[in-house]
Amino acid sequence: MSTLDFSTKIASKRFSNPIFTASGCASSGQELSQFFQLSEIGAVVTKSIMTKARNGRITPRMAETPSGMLNSIGLQGPGIDVFLERDIPWLVENNAKVIVSIAGENVDEYGVLARRLRSVQGISAIEVNISCPNVENRGQVFACHPDTASAAIESVRRNIGGELPIIAKLSPDVTDIVEIARSVINAGVDGLALINTLLGMVIDLNTMQPKLGGKTGGLSGPAIRPVAVRAIYQVHQMFPNTPIVGMGGVSNGRDALELVLAGASAVSVGTATFGDPTAVIKIRDELQMLLLERGFNDFRDAIGFAHRASS
């Protein structure tokens, strides 16, 4: 059988294969290492970290929905100090490629986090989660407006200096995701991550009240995959030179290939890991088979293939 070059690139960084974990769906990586070696996958994208430790929201924090789930975690995390002291060294020691996801409550917090990360060894990229409420703007989510989205990214850009690629993670809950992509590309990102969860709600018929403690929650899982494919397709069509980390409902190799054909240079797996801790490994192997079956010998030839005029 022919061989496949399965490696991929996000800006200047090379990854041995294009399957990553999704932020918030692999915690800090240690838990999954009981089931496979983290060096087996392209990269571990860590749970979005903020400057201070956070307790997050009250329970219930999840509701299963048909082929999906709602979550309302509220960015619980240990804060950047403990993260840098405990989680990063452990990941590096275990030969994982690491993409650090950061989140802020205001524009300055993004900058502060970027400054803390700029000289840390062993990080391959920074993913900027801008789907968080901006406390300085009535809790409006940064990712929902081109101005606030680019302000958060500029704050990171100014503070990161040099080497580390910046990936902006966008929300699909907008009228025109291409506009938001344009604004963050103009602000200097090296890549995009598409898509974050979609806002949803479930009402409990026993209590006749919203089921989640936080009332609303983010929808993820196979139910959102067509939205992810559409968003990736639209953005790749307009900005074919900006690498995209695609995600949203990927649970097997077929799903991953669909996102790649739409324009993803790498694929993050989130909710599927909850159902199967080794999902990332299975998806990686299935994707490799599917590419070979279709005659690809370089993964990168498949990226955005759906945009080619059919002959």
Binding site: G24, L32, N71, I73, F274, P277
Partner: peptide, 10 residues
């Protein structure tokens, strides 16, 4: 949601 410590829902 996961039982293995990766989702923070429990």
């Amino acid at each position: 949601a996961c039982g293995i410590g990766v989702c923070m829902t429990c």
